[in-house]
């Protein structure tokens, strides 16, 4: 039993982190029409800034808050000097992708230049691990899930009940139509970046709570994040949350498959047809599971599970 519950708990905590980041990605994807390959590296940047402020002696929560503010500032600056001029020229999406990959390279390697390539830890007291009938739940995982639920609740309120949230949904549906309706598109774009970068930064900092931080942490998440967004329908924040939990759970349960199946695993490994898929179910190939899901979605339901905006 606990062989199954343990991966589910891990999957929920990974899913919570990915959910916040995937919401950020789906908002910039759906509203700004930007498939931002530097998105994962924003998470990395946030985690390292939290590490920096934390190592300067700041309390971890203050450090996370401050890092979030800096990352939002960074996102607004890149929008002002990079994305806004490109939008004005009506640059093709493919060009935007290549620019974003250049930005990703620059961010990731700046992090390596400043902090080096080896993994680091936040300066935290050793967190307790709670034990529920044999299932180990690190306290930080519970914390992460709680924070994710709070953030998602806030986002839901914002999108459904505030003027800016409704305007964001309108711009996501059709930017030109929104403009002629009198919606201040520039303000919507500003708020989109604030929310997207804010959630992404929190998610990156939270990832540092459950594992060591390293310069590639965000880059390696870019595929699972895009997979979540596409699974949930591009531009649909609720879909992205569901997608992130599906991918997070699939990755962790897949990684724990050897323990869950026990002897049956070895039997399946003998089957020449299933062997490659069974082999993929290992902690070494978490990204392979995300890739597999993404391929299946693209082949059978490319529009995603829920209604997207594009």
């Amino acid at each position: 039993m606990e062989q199954l519950v343990q991966p589910i708990v891990n999957g929920l905590s990974l899913g919570s982190i990915m959910a916040l980041s995937a919401v950020g990605l789906t908002l910039t994807y759906g509203i700004l029409r930007l498939s931002n390959f530097a998105h994962g590296d924003l998470m990395t940047l946030a985690a390292y800034l939290t590490f920096l402020f934390n190592s300067l002696g700041l309390n971890i929560w203050l450090a996370m808050g401050l890092s979030t503010i800096v990352v939002i500032g960074f996102a607004l600056v890149t929008d002002k000097f990079l994305w806004a001029p490109m939008r004005k020229q009506r640059t093709t999406p493919t060009t935007l992708i290549i620019i974003s990959i250049g930005l990703a390279l620059a961010i990731r390697n700046t992090v390596i230049m400043v902090w080096g390539a080896s993994p680091q830890n936040y300066d935290l007291p050793v967190a307790e691990t709670l034990n529920f009938a044999g299932v180990r739940v690190p306290f930080n995982s519970l914390l992460v899930m709680g924070m994710a639920i709070a953030a998602i609740g806030g986002l839901h309120y914002l999108l459904q009940n505030t003027k800016i949230g409704k305007a964001m949904r309108a711009v996501a549906d059709d930017i030109d139509l929104a403009r002629v309706t009198g919606i201040k598109v520039d303000r919507v774009i500003l708020w989109t970046w604030v929310i997207a970068a804010g959630l992404t930064a929190v998610s990156g900092s939270m990832l540092g709570l459950i594992e060591k931080i390293n310069p590639n942490m965000g880059w390696f998440l870019i595929l699972p994040l895009f997979a979540s967004v596409i699974l949930g329908g591009i531009g649909n924040p609720y879909g992205a949350i569901v997608g992130a939990f599906v991918i997070g759970l699939a990755q962790e349960v897949g990684a724990g498959m050897r323990q869950i199946l026990g002897d049956a695993y070895l039997t399946l490994l003998q089957n020449p047809v299933l062997a490659p898929i069974v082999k993929l179910m290992s902690p070494d190939y978490k990204i392979g599971i995300a890739l597999l899901i993404m391929m299946l979605v693209l082949l059978f339901r490319p529009q995603g599970l829920f209604r997207g905006t594009m």
Binding site: I99, G102, L105, A106, N109, I112, A117
Partner: peptide
């Protein structure tokens, strides 16, 4: 006076920025 890892990173930062600059001004 930097270790190899940092030098490599420095070169990749340059390549990233060059890629952005080229795509913006001279695709």
């Amino acid at each position: 006076p930097l270790p190899t890892v940092q030098i490599d990173a420095f070169r990749m930062v340059f390549i990233g920025l060059l890629l952005i600059a080229l795509m913006v001004w001279r695709p």
